[in-house]
Design a protein around this nucleic acid. Structure first.
Lengths: 243, 243
DNA sequence: CTCGTGTCAAGAGCAGTGCTCTCTTTTGTT
DNA sequence: AACAAAAGAGAGCACTGCTCTTGACACGAG
């Protein structure tokens, strides 16, 4: 037992290697065939195994899908964290922009994984919440952290669209979220944060899934940056960096 | 020849009936199995035909997908048109809200078709532009029409976020769009319109695809309405209806 | 140093898929 | 009634996910 934690047996080593290979090849197939076309047999072929052998490592096709899902959420979360951490702690506007750009960059780099996470649900597949919620909530938690920190620091203007208001039921939902995440922000700001969150992914999805025409925007990154800036402004984040 | 336009031959009648049945059953399968699980064999079974027989009516699985795509775009466009037409011609804010709500309602009613249109691209399938662009652009054209009419009527406030600015390249793209659609709106407003458009579908997608938790929002329609109202406000549309 | 245990790979088999090809039946028209 | 066009039927190819059984191997305890 003690040896288990210091050094893996050769068998165990081989196993983790094979498991990693399966995920790696699975991602490749995801990119070329899509989630629905993901085939354990094809993965087995690429791995040099007979089809039935991969079931020693992965219980089912859905299990492989879950592995790829967790893997992708992890990559996206890492990319976002790295980008946000590269911005000074008190530059909340910069952090927001960095988060948004990181999501877009990652999505454009690995459109298949992005489609797996944020596209159509894979029919017949239900993600096991106990394994996917934690990695799957990293981005929104990070966004909430940025906005809440900005609020606490007094760096967020009172939401300029307060006139829109928040209905009682919605207010209850929003304050439940606030309590859940331990935030200090008022309900209006949380609502704005949710809007910014969904709008961010809406903009990314349209670009990644090709809903703009092929030649409509010659500089899509400039359009996206403007969208981000507008979303930041409507959330009350002012750009102190601009001179 | 003359008889062809007045009355269809019994054979031709049977054919259009079968074609309609195929689309109807295809939609049912799309709802239960998803686009990737759409099976011509299963459609044939439900139709009481042998698998090869459906190829008399539909050239391929992709062809059926195209039929479903055009069908769904048509339904969405009809729903949006009906909703917007039900609002007084000079109530642009109300028209915007109606458009957004119509999209959401339709998406919630037929999530499978919505996923086909706005979810992950179906791997290996390329929509034939000559058949899908016209029905596929009805919503954004209608939105553009609302905003442009509001602008011409002076019912749109100068976009309050002009400070964000528009880069030169982006400005060129936006004015190209304006010329294409014959609009009068300034570039800033067009950019806001695009943001509203993608944000609308971002909000709908998150709700339809279940990216909020299952119990996070007890009144999602209120959240959505607020999002719409904020998007209208950031676009410069003022709500004259509110008293 | 043998022997049981657990790990792994292989192969056959079931039921399903898209699609093509050939053959037969039905049908509308002349 | 005769004929051609249209529609359906059936077999077949190559593929999929998944299960079950069989055989090979390595490892560690006795």
């Amino acid at each position: 037992m003690a040896s288990e934690r210091t050094a893996l047996s050769p068998r165990a080593r081989a196993r983790v290697q094979t498991e990693a290979d399966i995920v790696r090849i699975g991602r490749r197939h995801l990119a070329s065939e899509g989630a629905a076309g993901l085939s354990l047999r094809a993965v087995a072929r690429d791995l040099g195994l007979v089809s039935s052998a991969v079931y020693r490592y992965v219980a089912s096709r859905d299990e492989l899908l879950t592995l790829l899902l967790v893997d992708a959420y992890g990559e996206l979360g890492d990319a976002v964290d790295a980008a946000v951490n590269g911005v000074p702690q008190d530059d909340f506007h910069g952090q927001f922009m960095a988060l948004g750009r990181a999501v877009r960059d990652w999505a454009l780099k690995d459109t298949a994984s992005y489609a797996l996470l944020f596209g159509s649900p894979v029919p017949g597949y239900r993600a096991p919440a106990e394994r996917t919620t934690v990695p799957g909530t990293r981005v929104i938690y990070r966004l909430a952290g940025i906005l809440d920190a900005a609020h606490r620091a007094g760096a967020i203007a009172p939401v300029p669209l307060a006139a829109v208001g928040v209905s009682p039921k919605l207010k209850r939902d929003l304050s439940a979220i606030r309590d859940d995440l331990g935030l200090a922000a008022p309900e209006e700001l949380i609502a704005q944060g949710v809007l910014a969150w969904t709008s961010l992914f809406g903009a990314v999805s349209f670009e990644v899934f090709g809903h703009y025409g092929p030649d409509t925007f010659t500089a899509p990154e400039e359009l996206f940056d403007r969208h981000l800036a507008v979303l930041a402004a409507t959330t009350g984040l002012q750009d102190q960096g601009a001179r």
